[in-house]
Amino acid sequence: MGERAESRYVKLTKDHGPLEDITPGELNQPIEVPQLAVHKCMECGQPLPESYTPPSDEAWMTGIFGCAEDRENCLTGLFCPCVLFGRNVESLHEETPWTGPCICHAIFIEGGIALATATAIFNGYIDPGTSFLIFEGLFFTWWMCGIYTGQVRQTLQKKYHLENSPCDPCCVHCCMHWCALCQEHREMKGRLFDNAFSEATIVNAPPIQEMKSSDNKENPETSSDNSHKHTGLELQPV
């Protein structure tokens, strides 16, 4: 008979101390299993691949030219577009304060418009070559700002699975920057309002319950009197 295989268990004696200190409850912590953390389809429940992205086919709540639907939003975007852009970024990224994007927008967009206006006014006093370089630099800056603000719009579209309306986000901001800012603000405002309304729970008070005695039930006083009445039976000796 061959030798017995060595046991995997170690026999502890009194001389052995604890190998490691275990905090109570440490072994009951949940374990993340990557194989179980899979995305599933909301309709059929089938697992989806990691590279799956939901289709961006939902329509916007308002059109690109619906600025008049929100008067306050329209006036803010017309006279202070930097403030409106900062609010949009803050609503989209809660960890980012609105002041940073607002200052950047004011420097590059409003500052560029002011420089272009001043260059056009003093066109006769500035060398034509210098004016051409200024306008070329402003055009390049406007294009870069359109790409940046377009990325913010694209992030909004990915968050709510919105379609490109009316075209690519960067092109929308390059051609219709103020209208795009107002549309994005209205979209986030409407989405937040819908989420708050859907998450609200309406609790109705329970109806008032009253205990009423039934008509067929005898009066307790009458029943007690009947129980104390003597029967008409007489006991006679045999």
Rank of each mutant, 00 (worst) to 15 (best):
T76M: 05
H93C: 08
L92N: 00
T62C: 02
P101A: 04
Y125V: 00
T117L: 02
Y160N: 13
C145A: 10
T119E: 12
R71P: 09
P55A: 05
A118T: 05
D57R: 06
P81Q: 03
C170G: 08
C82W: 06
F139Y: 14
I126M: 09
T76V: 14
Q151F: 10
Y125H: 04
F135W: 13
C170H: 10
Y160T: 01
H93K: 14
R71Q: 08
A106G: 15
I126W: 02
I121C: 01
C80T: 09
E163M: 05
N164L: 08
L84F: 04
Y148W: 04
W142F: 13
I103P: 04
W98A: 14
S165H: 10
F108G: 14
T96V: 11
H105S: 11
S131E: 11
I64H: 06
W60Q: 12
N123A: 04
P97H: 10
C102P: 07
C145F: 06
R153F: 01
W143L: 11
W143Q: 07
P55H: 03
A106L: 15
F79G: 00
L75E: 08
T96H: 05
E58I: 08
E95C: 01
Y125G: 03
R87F: 12
G124I: 03
R71T: 03
I107F: 14
N123P: 00
G100R: 08
T155N: 06
S165V: 02
T62Y: 08
F140T: 09
A116Q: 06
H161Q: 13
F139H: 07
F79M: 08
D127M: 09
F85K: 01
I121A: 13
L162N: 09
L156G: 01
A120E: 02
F122P: 09
H105M: 12
I147M: 02
Y160K: 04
L138P: 04
G124Y: 00
K158M: 02
L138K: 10
Y52F: 15
C145H: 01
L78C: 07
T96W: 09
P166V: 14
E136Y: 12
S51H: 13
R153Y: 03
Q154A: 11
Q154P: 03
F132S: 11
A68Y: 12
L92Q: 10
F135L: 15
C145I: 14
A59C: 05
P54H: 01
D168V: 01
T76C: 07
A68W: 13
L162E: 04
W98M: 15
N164Q: 10
F79S: 03
I126G: 08
A106F: 14
I64K: 02
M61S: 06
N73F: 02
A120P: 00
G77R: 04
F79L: 11
S165A: 13
F139R: 05
S91W: 04
E163P: 01
E94N: 08
I107T: 13
F132C: 13
G146R: 07
G100D: 13
D127T: 04
Q151I: 05
F135V: 13
L92H: 07
E163Q: 11
G150A: 01
I126L: 10
I147Y: 00
S51Y: 14
A114E: 05
I109Q: 08
P97C: 12
C167Y: 06
P166E: 12
